Computed example of a mutant assay.
Amino acid sequence: MKKVVLASVLALAAASASAGSYSEPMIEAPVIVEEAAGSSLGGGAALLLLGALAVAAIVAAD
């Protein structure tokens, strides 16, 4: 009698342990938002243009 009760308890435990879904859990991909960076060329180009104008003014002054 003990073996029958033990077998039924083990069968119930095994059935409840595998009652869930066998599919893999859904893992959502992280959303990466990148801020738009300002143009680093803008400041450098203005400085280069200012330098070229200064050189042109010095050459024109001679």
Rank of each mutant, 00 (worst) to 15 (best):
L50S: 14
S16D: 09
L41M: 11
I58F: 10
A45H: 13
V55R: 06
P25F: 04
A60C: 13
L53R: 05
L41T: 10
E24G: 12
L12N: 15
I32W: 00
Y22C: 09
A60D: 14
K2F: 10
L10E: 13
A37M: 11
P25S: 01
D62K: 10
G43F: 07
A45F: 14
V55N: 01
G44H: 04
Y22A: 02
M26C: 11
V4T: 14
S21K: 02
L6C: 08
A29I: 00
A29C: 01
G20P: 02
L47H: 09
M1Y: 14
S40N: 11
S8P: 05
V4D: 12
V4K: 05
A54C: 05
S39D: 11
A13T: 11
A13Y: 07
S16T: 11
S18T: 15
L49Y: 08
E28I: 03
G20S: 03
M1T: 12
V33H: 00
G51M: 05
A54Y: 00
A52F: 02
A60Q: 15
L50P: 02
L41W: 13
S16Q: 03
E35H: 07
A61L: 13
G51D: 05
G44N: 08
S18V: 13
A54D: 02
P25Q: 01
L50N: 07
L50A: 08
G38V: 10
L47G: 03
A17L: 09
V55F: 08
A19D: 05
A19K: 04
L47P: 00
V31P: 00
M26P: 01
G42D: 10
A14Q: 07
A14L: 15
V9I: 15
M26V: 13
A13Q: 04
L47A: 13
S8A: 12
A7N: 12
A36S: 06
A54I: 05
E24Q: 13
A14I: 08
S16M: 15
K3N: 12
S23H: 03
A54L: 10
Y22H: 15
M1K: 14
A29G: 10
A54R: 05
M1H: 13
G44Q: 05
